Simulated assay, not measured.
Amino acid sequence: MITHLHTLSGHQNPIYALANSNKMGAFFSAGNDKGVVEWSLETMSFAKIILPVQSSVYALHIYKDLLFIAQRSGLIQVFDLLEQKVKATLSHHQKGVFDVKTIAYKNEIISTGEDGTVAVWSLNDFSLLYNFPVIQNTVRTIALNKNEKEVALGCKDGIIRIYNSEDYALIKELAGHQFAVTALQYSPDDTYLISGSRDAQLKIWNLPDYNLLETVPAHMFSVYAIVFHPTLPYFATCSQDKSIKLWDSRNFKLYKILSLEKNTPGHSHSINKLIWSYDGKYLISTGDDRQVMVWELIP
């Protein structure tokens, strides 16, 4: 079903962030070694360093021809992929920025991180529109539902906070995890929200009421990413326990474990990030071992 295809080497330090390119067959990676790298899926090789950065990159986010580069310094650089230059630098956060998302219907960008605040920026001129505090410490991850009207924030206190994106009013708090919430995704059909945590569990929250539907003991340590396949009923998770797992997104059955401990190819350290390629043919993983692995999905 899913097999190791290629390992891409070149980063000198742990990698924290991945994002698909604005063009098919390419993607970006970045982490603790001061550069954002472009890779080719067509040649399975290094393409170029697109931008040097001054501090570690914790998140990458693509929107149209813009790449948002969120850094440990608190800055977010906006890189124009067509013009190949930095278009703006967003400065508000006092500590590292862990996640960035766009809310297209409002033409806004939202960011959050270690300072526990959410900043809302204009996509028109990249000005700071407003900001608000969420908790006293880290907000790790952001998820948007299908129509982008609800924003879920995964927080260090183990609580998921749901906001209305129209006015950023707090709708609901979901208390289910024992430790920090480190991964969040709404299902593509908007029937549930799935969360992962340092408690190594996945929790399935039924929509629209956010009632807890199911708890899945998914990994041995922190769950760092949850990614739904773009067309097929699967999602993948990765963890500090050095494993990738493939799940059925309808009944949450475990299909496959990719791990050195299970005698498959795999990462030797914590896996920090996953993405699917746009066409869903490849799953891409990376982490503390400085390797980028490409896995091929054969339905």
Rank of each mutant, 00 (worst) to 15 (best):
M1F: 08
I2W: 04
H4K: 13
H4G: 12
L5A: 11
L5F: 13
L8V: 13
N13V: 05
P14Q: 11
P14T: 08
P14I: 08
A17G: 06
A17R: 01
A19H: 00
N22A: 02
K23C: 00
M24N: 00
G25F: 00
F28W: 08
D33A: 15
M44K: 04
M44W: 02
A47Q: 10
I49M: 05
Q54D: 15
L60P: 04
Y63N: 00
L67I: 00
L67N: 03
F68H: 00
A70E: 06
G74F: 10
L75T: 08
I76T: 02
Q77M: 10
F79Q: 03
D80I: 02
K85G: 06
K101Y: 04
Y105Q: 07
S111H: 00
T112K: 01
E114Q: 07
E114G: 00
V120I: 15
V120T: 10
N124Y: 11
D125Q: 14
S127I: 05
S127F: 07
Y130H: 01
N131W: 14
N131R: 15
N131I: 13
N131A: 14
F132I: 03
F132W: 04
I135G: 13
Q136I: 06
T141F: 11
I142E: 09
N145Y: 08
K149S: 06
A152Y: 08
G154R: 09
K156L: 12
K156E: 12
I159D: 13
I160A: 12
I162M: 08
N164W: 07
E166V: 06
L174V: 13
A175V: 11
H177G: 11
F179T: 06
A180Y: 02
A180D: 04
T182C: 11
T182A: 12
S187H: 09
P188C: 03
S195D: 11
G196M: 11
D199A: 09
Q201V: 07
Q201G: 09
Q201N: 10
L202G: 05
W205T: 04
W205G: 05
N206C: 03
L212T: 08
E214A: 15
T215P: 06
V216Y: 12
V216S: 10
M220P: 06
F221D: 14
Y224D: 11
A225S: 14
A225V: 07
A225Y: 01
I226S: 03
I226T: 02
F228Q: 04
H229V: 05
H229N: 03
L232Q: 12
F235I: 13
K245E: 07
W247P: 05
W247C: 10
D248T: 04
S249R: 07
N251P: 05
F252R: 12
K253N: 14
K262F: 03
N263A: 12
N263M: 09
T264Y: 10
T264S: 14
H269W: 07
S270L: 14
S270H: 13
I271L: 10
L274C: 14
I275M: 03
S277P: 01
K281T: 02
T286F: 01
G287N: 09
R290K: 15
W295Y: 09
W295K: 09
